[in-house]
Structure formats: structure tokens, C-alpha cells
Design a protein around this nucleic acid. Structure first.
Lengths: 214, 214
DNA sequence: AATAAAATTTACCAAAAGGTAAAAATTGAT
DNA sequence: ATCAATTTTTACCTTTTGGTAAATTTTATT
């Protein structure tokens, strides 16, 4: 095998398909029960393979769990760099940030719930990651917001807690969706609900920053 | 036994003490692992009794879980009626509401986490409760906020999503405390952190409503 | 067609978990 | 002191669970 990229035989394609089916199944189960409450048997059932076959692809539960978390974090990291595009106003950057965070709740509710279970449980697996990856990025973003304040571009707000509030307000549409469905009297949150939610949250944040109304 | 209230013998007092010790232990374990992930053995261990003795007091795990949830909900219901005191402005009411919700996160982080696990897991136990108790109260509160808008007391905001954001922004200080500790570089959230958080969240909400700054 | 590699199934297993049943110990009331 | 009620411990039991090991079947390569 001299090729870097492996040959895409029928077998290897099937493998990929099956692996991602397993990961989706695992995501569903972990989202519903957290790590300790989930069983390999149940994951296999949802992936429509035998437990032993599941173990063939992911030799243990821990590994599978970490893969599910990693998949989600990779997406978040990619979509959630709070990068400053030249010439953009804070308001534009913040609006995009809220919008993208909300899109993640809408598109990856299960991954989001897995993450939530993990953090609520004390982040036994992710703590190191939070320290090594999230904190540095957070510190940079806080500094950026502070610079906006110093330049008078936005009102004086608490930068750390601004982020906490944005995260909470957007993530809640994935994690607590059942509660909202009940309160809004719907079976599932639809596209329109997410749009209203995004508008509402965006407006709250923009007002908090003292930017003018849209 | 003609007396309605039972005699407070040494035994009955001990029983109460032990029961509440068990409930606190259960809260800790359920908060950390959710229902399915928690074991009676572990709860007994933390309550410092044997598993069999735990089962003597709470004959099964389901019952114990429901008791823990009920305890938390009773507190919430009591503290979180969004009642309109005569002559109070919306701003005062909202400030108190945020303040009390934040106090619950500070004072009952474990109960809050148990609730979060339950909702994220699809509210298998609490769904009925949400429908029968929370929704009616929510509907009333939404109507109240709408009336404020109609009277021009606050700006035009989305009442439903206003509540969702307030809940999320306050609850996150209980549920995601580990993440914040990492990001703020602290071992635990202290009184001062909660005070800052409360000020920040309150300010966000008050601004969103278009009330004047404090 | 034959052989190697990959995928799936079958057969088990030890530990953990939720409980039941009953014996033993402790406490309360007379 | 005695007897009943309560509490705690001891002994088990069944089901679930994560995982090993090996046999079997399917697929790819020559």
C-alpha cells in the first residue's frame, strides 16, 4: 500500500457507511441516556446490527463515546471560530455568531445533547479538552470583545458572561427542546420556530451590546 | 393514632434525618449520571448506609428518582410564580424573577442538574408534569408580558423566547458550572461569580425589554 | 478456482445492578 | 423485663452489560 488514500473498494465504502450509521445510532442513544446510561446492545439495535458486530467496529464503549464527542467538537470548532473579518462591525460578527450557534442546535441536536450530558456530569472526558482548546479560544474572544468596548463600538458589558448567555440561550434549543415543544404546544420544533428563536435571541444580544436595532 | 401529626419520637426523627440524607445523596448521584446511569449501590455508598438499607427506605430506584425530582419542582414552583405585585413595574418584576432563578441555580445545583438530565433525555418522567403544571403557568406569564407590551411598558419582544432565554441563561450556571470554572480559571464558582453573573444576565434582559438602565 | 482478508455470528463469561426474603439486632411501649 | 414494631444485615437470585474467543461466512485478489 503505497497510496496515502486507501482504495475505495466496495468493502471500504460499506465500512464507512456502516461506521457512520453506528455513530449516528450512538449519538441518539448517548443523547438520550448519557454515557453510563447507554448500552452497546441498544446502540447496536438502533444501528441495526448485532452487538458483537458493533464491537467489531468499535471495540469498546468508551472509544465509541469519544468518537461521538470528537465528531461534534470538530464541527463546533470549525463553525465557531469567532474570527474577525476585516471591516466587519461587532454587530455583524455577533449576529453571525448567534446565527451559527443556533444552526448547530438545529442541525445537530443529538451531538449537542451528548455534549450537555457530558458537561453536566462534570466533563470527566472533556475537561482536558476544555482546558487545552476551548479556554485559549475563549480568552482570545473575550479580549476581542473588550477591545470593542474600549473603542466604544459596543456598550460596556461583561464579556465572559455575554458568551455564557449566548451559548446557553442557543444551546437550549437543542437540549431542552422537549420542554419547549410542550410549552409551545407542538410535537416538534419546526424551521419557523428556530427562525423565531434566532431572531429573538439575536435581538436580545444586539440590544445588550447597545447596537442599534435592526 | 388519632393525631394527624405523628409523634416525633427519637426513631421518627432519625428516620427523617436519614431520609433526607438519602435524598441528598441521590441528588448528587442522579445529578452526575442521570437516572439510568446511577446505581442504588452508589447512592447508598454516598449516604453511608448499605444498599439493602437504602432499599428499606426507598423500595426502588424509580421511586427515589421521582422523590428527588418532586423535591426540586416543589421548590421551583414556590419560588417561581411570576406573580404581579400591585404597583410594581415590569422591570422590578423581571429583576426579581432573574434574581430568584439565579438563586436556585446557586442553591440547588444538583437538583437543577437532575432536572436537566431528565429534560435532555426527553422528559420520560416529567413530561406529564410539564403539560399539566408548567404550561398553564407559562401561558399566564406570556399573557402578562404581552399585556406589558400592549400597554407600552416594555418594548416589543417575543414573550415565549424571552422566557426560554432567561431560563437558559440562569440555569446554565448550575448545569454547565464545570465549563465556566474552566473558562474562568477557577476551581469552583464563588459567591462573587454568581453576583457578577446575575448582574450581567439581569442587565441583558432589562435592556432587551427596553427598560432604562439601572 | 484457490487463498487471504474482512465481516458476521455463535457461544460464553464475569461483574454489576435491581431486587426479594428472611434472619438478626435495635428500639419503643407497657 | 417483655413483647411488638422498626431497622439493619445477611444470603441469594435474575437480568443486564461490556467484553473475549473462536467459528463461520462473505468479499477481494491472484
Amino acid at each position: 500500500m503505497l497510496d496515502k488514500k486507501e482504495k475505495r473498494t466496495k468493502q471500504s465504502v460499506n465500512r464507512e457507511v456502516l461506521e457512520s450509521r453506528i455513530l449516528r445510532a450512538a449519538e441518539i442513544v448517548f443523547a438520550s441516556k448519557g454515557f453510563s446510561g447507554s448500552s452497546m446492545e441498544r446502540i447496536a439495535e438502533i444501528a441495526k446490527i448485532s452487538k458483537q458486530n458493533l464491537i467489531y467496529y468499535f471495540p469498546n464503549k468508551d472509544l465509541l463515546y469519544r468518537r461521538v464527542l470528537k465528531e461534534m467538537l470538530d464541527i463546533w470548532i470549525e463553525k465557531l471560530s469567532f474570527l474577525e473579518v476585516q471591516g466587519e462591525t461587532p454587530e455583524v460578527i455577533i449576529r453571525r455568531y448567534v446565527s451559527e450557534k443556533m444552526a448547530l442546535s438545529r442541525l445537530y441536536p443529538n451531538g449537542s445533547k451528548v455534549f450537555a450530558h457530558e458537561i453536566i456530569s462534570g466533563a470527566p472526558v472533556l475537561k482536558e479538552y476544555l482546558i487545552s482548546h476551548l479556554k485559549p479560544q475563549f480568552d482570545r474572544d473575550v479580549i476581542l470583545v473588550k477591545s470593542w468596548i474600549n473603542k466604544g463600538l459596543i456598550d460596556c458589558v461583561d464579556p465572559e458572561h455575554l458568551f455564557f448567555t449566548i451559548w446557553a440561550a442557543t444551546q437550549t434549543y437543542a437540549d431542552f427542546s422537549v420542554q419547549m415543544e410542550v410549552l409551545l404546544g407542538k410535537n416538534t420544533l419546526e424551521e419557523a420556530d428556530f427562525q423565531r428563536a434566532e431572531d429573538a435571541v439575536t435581538e436580545f444580544v444586539v440590544r445588550a451590546l447597545g447596537a442599534k436595532k435592526k
